[in-house]
């Protein structure tokens, strides 16, 4: 039944990513037409616009959320593909451990970065 649990969350994460990453794409790759969340004009990825988004609580929270669901969805998908190659049980266990470590590690890194960038952007806006 464990696999049922992992898969259900994989689907739920996929739906969450649809909206969160969809918004990210609208800002970054369709920003030329939508001009969403890029008040400083020019490119959506300019330093000024990046700082603007990092400074808002909305983006800090949604970036962390997107990071979490995307890491889970992607790494579980990779695990599924690898496990379908008929690995030995010990190799399967090792693969799961490695993927969990990579996932938690990157989640920690990204969360720290989002919070730190938020603080920097807020300080910059005030100062």
């Amino acid at each position: 039944m464990r696999e049922t649990k992992y898969w259900t969350w994989h689907m739920a994460a996929g739906v969450a990513i649809l909206f969160l990453l969809g918004l990210h794409m609208l800002i970054m790759h369709l920003g030329g037409t939508t001009h969403l969340f890029a008040p400083h004009g020019g490119e959506a990825v300019s330093k000024a616009n990046s700082l603007f988004r990092d400074g808002t609580l909305f983006f800090t929270v949604t970036y962390i959320l997107l990071l979490g669901v995307a890491l889970y969805h992607g790494l579980y998908g990779l695990r599924t593909i690898l496990f379908e190659l008929t690995l030995k049980p010990a190799v399967e266990k090792l693969t799961t451990v490695v993927l969990v470590v990579v996932g938690l590690g990157l989640f920690g890194l990204g969360t720290w970065a989002a919070i730190a960038a938020h603080a920097v952007a807020q300080a910059g806006a005030r100062g």
């Binding site: 039944m1 464990r2 696999e3 898969w7 496990f83």
Partner: peptide, 11 residues
């Protein structure tokens, strides 16, 4: 469902 919902099952 112990087998069908497991690692080698429907998913």
């Amino acid at each position: 469902s112990k087998l069908t919902g497991g690692a080698d099952g429907a998913f």
